[in-house]
Design a protein around this nucleic acid. Structure first.
Length: 599
RNA sequence: GCGCCCUUAGCUCAGUUGGAUAGAGCAACAGCCUUCUAAGCUGUGGGUCGGUGGUUCGAGUCCACCAGGGCGCGCCA
């Protein structure tokens, strides 16, 4: 067929605009040209697209925006894709495209499949996206869920934009918390072998108290009992001699918790490529080596910090500490690297971890964190700058808290009360796809209400349903089309070859324009690190499609399938098939499975 | 006290990185099923974009200050 396929219609027209602009202004500086955009027309009455080129170039050209716009419109008129170009408003040039240029979007989509929208903007840059990274001290809960979904979708999005992405999980398996976990597991072990102690009697013996009382450790205790019998409680062991059993119990428990974490993540459809252990960084000496490396660079000193102004902790006392010169890299204060017992702070090991990522060749590190870690970001950026000598960048994506609601009432999330919403509970209740989609219906740094009733509602105000319904309708039409013709004649590859001249109705063109803007949406979302934009795009596309569908309710001649008019029908099927492809493509970024039919 | 994030229609939220008359859904009202799925669609009303200044051709978007909300602030992770 005679369609010139292009992977991004907007990028293509931007080239046309720049060509025309350079003919008018041969000396246009590159930095001005870089600001030229071709974007969808806000109002269809303006045409298909608009460019700001005249306005951004006006100053450098010493010409009035409106005059330059008129000249640019003249230069663009009657181009191969452009039917009409007109100056408008303060200096926009509105473009109306020839029908074949818009139509060409469909075969491009049908040939590329879900690769349509893939970009090269990332330039194959090695990016590490770290997310979830929960302590292995219990099952994942809903607080981890948002980070898991946002991180996973962001990684998919960056990969689609041409970055070489590694998905990573940092296991916080060092420090006091996993020791407390080991004590808690030891209690379950004592129960499994039949202890005479009560829980409170045991808790009184635990340094720092018995912290993790959830039932999820009961199986771990049973496993330890099966593997070791009473040996961990006798033979010189027991509560008074934790050094005899603590390593065994801790290792076993962490392994069990991480197994559970991976299962929970798998249930959510998340599977990181790399899991890095904090303990391993400590035990292999990587963390100590890192400190020496920074000391060699003169970035570590022994000093005393000022107490925070206005809010001095009760137990504050000046104390010499091992400090990292974070202030040299833009942080507010230098940061301690050693606790008073001589062990590393969390930050120290985290520097070593980020140094490890840099050493593995990543130029861009993205950490998806809870918003309560917001105050931690500046020191981490300082550390990355110091360790990489400015060669690597760290970005943080902060996820705000999720309030779980049921029937308009908040669901409490307290570990102690036992009404703790685990990730698994959430998935079991509303389904993995609804969880993932819904988590992406808000900007990550905005608080979100997750209404358990709303996300399973089958109405327009539930985007999960609304988008899935649009896809199901596409598939329904295509199944009916395959009956009318044949599966081969209605396959995407065959539909990519059909003439499309009959697609002239405004609602049809609206869908095509939306499909044409998919690549730029992907790129913009990736550059902004905002995967939620994909969800909003799909919602808009679904709305365009439902509108088109309903036209057939008013006028039977406007339905997709027209007996006896195979040319028109095939053209419409191409539009439907392309819509389905882009919905699938967007859902794939979000990690959501498309449905073939609604039940 | 300091730092970061947030404030857009009655409610929940978008706003294409500074573009034209600020948009959706819900709620309210009025319409559309002999049908490729009405689980949908169409229309109407609803706004000093928290406030005040500033930057420029142009500000919801950038800057300064103020008000309100959230998070954080040495040896937790």
């Amino acid at each position: 067929m005679g369609y010139v396929l292009m992977t991004d219609l907007f990028a293509h027209l931007r080239m046309r605009v720049l060509d025309a602009l350079h003919r008018i202004l041969p000396d246009l500086p590159d930095d001005i040209a870089a600001r030229v955009e071709v974007s969808p027309a806000r109002d269809p009455a303006h045409g298909d697209m608009a460019t700001n080129a005249a306005m951004v170039a006006a100053k450098a050209a010493r010409r009035k925006p409106a005059d330059l716009a008129a000249a640019l419109a003249e230069a663009l008129r009657d181009g191969p894709e452009i039917a009409e170009a007109a100056a408008a408003g303060p200096g926009f040039v509105n473009l109306r495209l020839r029908a074949h240029a818009l139509h060409a979007v469909l075969p491009a989509i049908l040939q590329a499949g879900t690769a349509y929208g893939d970009g090269t903007r990332g330039g194959n840059l090695a990016v590490n996206v770290e997310y979830v990274s929960a302590n292995p001290t219990g099952p994942l809960h809903i607080g981890h869920c948002r980070g898991a979904v946002v991180g996973d979708a962001l990684a998919n999005l960056l990969a689609k934009t041409g970055y070489a992405v590694t998905k990573e999980y940092y296991i916080n398996d060092a420090g006091a918390q996993v020791t407390a976990l080991a004590w808690a597991a030891y209690w379950r072990y004592l129960q499994a072998i039949g202890t005479a102690l009560s829980e409170e009697e045991f808790a009184a013996e635990v340094p720092g108290g018995l912290q993790y009382r959830g039932e999820y450790l009961i199986p771990v205790g049973a496993e330890l009992a099966a593997a070791h019998g009473p040996a961990l409680a006798t033979a010189g062991g027991g509560i008074a001699a934790p050094e005899r059993w603590i390593d065994i119990v801790r290792d076993h428990t962490i392994a069990a918790m991480m197994r559970a974490v991976r299962e929970d993540l798998a249930a959510l459809g998340v599977a990181q490529d790399v899991f890095t252990s904090e303990r391993a960084l400590v035990e292999t000496g990587a963390a100590d080596a890192l400190i020496e490396r920074l000391r060699g660079d003169g970035l570590i000193y022994e000093g005393v910090l000022e107490p925070p102004k206005g809010k001095t902790p009760d137990d504050w006392e000046p104390r010499p500490q091992t400090l990292f010169r974070a202030t040299q890299f833009g942080d507010d204060v230098d940061r301690p690297l050693r606790k008073s017992d001589g062990s590393n702070t969390y930050f120290t090991n985290d520097i070593a971890y980020h140094a490890d990522k840099i050493d593995r060749g990543f130029a861009l590190l993205i950490d998806v964190l809870g918003a309560d870690h917001g105050g931690y970001v500046s020191r981490l950026k300082a550390a990355v700058a110091a360790v990489s000598h400015g060669g690597a960048a760290l970005e943080a994506v902060l996820c705000q808290i999720v309030h779980v609601m049921r029937a308009g009432q908040p669901v409490r999330m307290s570990k102690r009360a036992g009404s703790y919403v685990t990730l698994r509970d959430l998935i079991d209740e509303v389904g993995r796809d609804a969880v993932r989609f819904t988590m992406l219906t808000r900007k990550a740094d905005a608080q979100m209400e997750f209404d358990l009733d709303a996300v399973v509602a089958q109405t327009r105000d539930n985007p999960v349903f609304y988008v899935q319904y649009a896809h199901a309708r596409c598939r329904s039409v295509l199944r009916a089309g395959a009956e009318m013709f044949s599966p081969a004649a209605t396959a995407d590859a065959a539909l990519a070859e059909v003439p499309l001249d009959s697609l002239t109705a405004e609602p049809e063109l609206a869908v095509i324009r939306r499909l044409a803007s998919w690549p730029r949406t992907v790129e913009a979302a990736a550059l902004a690190r905002e995967p939620h934009r994909i969800a909003f795009f799909l919602y808009d596309l679904a709305a365009d499609f439902h509108m088109l569908w309903n036209r057939g309710k008013d006028d039977a001649a406007l339905r997709f399938l027209q007996a006896g008019r195979s040319g028109e029908t095939l053209a419409r099927l191409a539009l439907v098939a392309a819509t389905a492809v882009v919905i699938r493509s967007g859902l794939a970024v979000m990690g959501v499975a498309p449905v073939e039919e609604m039940r």
